[in-house]
C-alpha cells in the first residue's frame, strides 16, 4: 500500500461522510452516500481486500443507492436538518 493514496482517500471519505449527513436534501444525501461507498471501495482495493471491494462496489454503491433513491422518491425530499 502507498501511504499517499491512503491519506488522500481517507480524507475524501471523511469529507463525503460529513457532506452526506449535513446536506439538506435527502435525494442528494443518498447520492453522496453512493459516492462515499465508491471511495470506501477504493480504500479496500488499496488495502488488498479485493473481494470486499468488489462486493462494496456492486452492493453498497449500486443497489443500496437505488433503494435509498426509491424510498426518498416515494416519500419526501425535504428535511429540516
Amino acid at each position: 500500500m502507498i501511504w499517499q493514496f491512503d491519506l488522500i482517500i481517507l480524507a475524501l471519505v471523511v469529507i463525503s461522510a460529513i457532506a452526506a449527513i449535513t446536506i439538506k436534501d435527502l435525494l442528494s444525501a443518498g447520492v453522496i452516500l453512493g459516492a462515499y461507498s465508491f471511495l470506501m471501495c477504493l480504500l479496500w482495493t488499496e488495502m488488498g481486500a479485493v473481494d470486499v471491494a468488489f462486493t462494496e462496489a456492486s452492493v453498497g454503491a449500486g443497489v443500496s443507492t437505488v433503494f435509498m433513491i426509491a424510498a426518498v422518491y416515494k416519500t419526501t425530499r425535504r428535511t429540516k436538518d
Binding site: 449527513i21 435527502l26 435509498m68 416519500t75
Partner: peptide
C-alpha cells in the same frame, strides 16, 4: 430525520 438516521447507520 429518519432517512438521515439510516444514512448515519450506514456510515
Amino acid at each position: 430525520n429518519l432517512v438521515k438516521k439510516i444514512i448515519g447507520m450506514s456510515i
